[in-house]
């Protein structure tokens, strides 16, 4: 199994967490898992909306302290 790539998008307003995730998704291989770290409250709903629409897979989403940890698997 491939390693989980961590994307630190904490404390950033532009391009912002979802844009960062889209960038790194393009670099990933199908089957790779990416873990997005974000301090932006909106990320918790924005990311699943995009992931579901595009057909990738939400692995998990949890808030630890002030940071959201959102894991997504590239499905296509």
């Amino acid at each position: 199994m491939s390693e989980t790539k961590v994307i630190d998008a904490c404390n950033t307003y532009c391009p912002g967490p979802l844009m960062e995730l889209i960038t790194y998704m393009k670099q990933a291989e199908v089957g790779d898992t990416l873990e997005l770290l974000s301090t932006d409250q909106g990320t918790a709903s924005d990311v699943p909306e995009w992931v579901n629409k595009i057909g990738h897979e939400m692995v998990s989403s949890e808030k630890i302290g002030k940071i959201w940890h959102i894991k997504v698997r590239k499905a296509k």
Binding site: Y13, P15, G16, L18, M19, I22, G42, D46, W50
Partner: peptide, 9 residues
């Protein structure tokens, strides 16, 4: 690309 019309809210 994302769920609003610009990356900066």
């Amino acid at each position: 690309p994302i769920n609003r019309i610009h990356s900066i809210e």
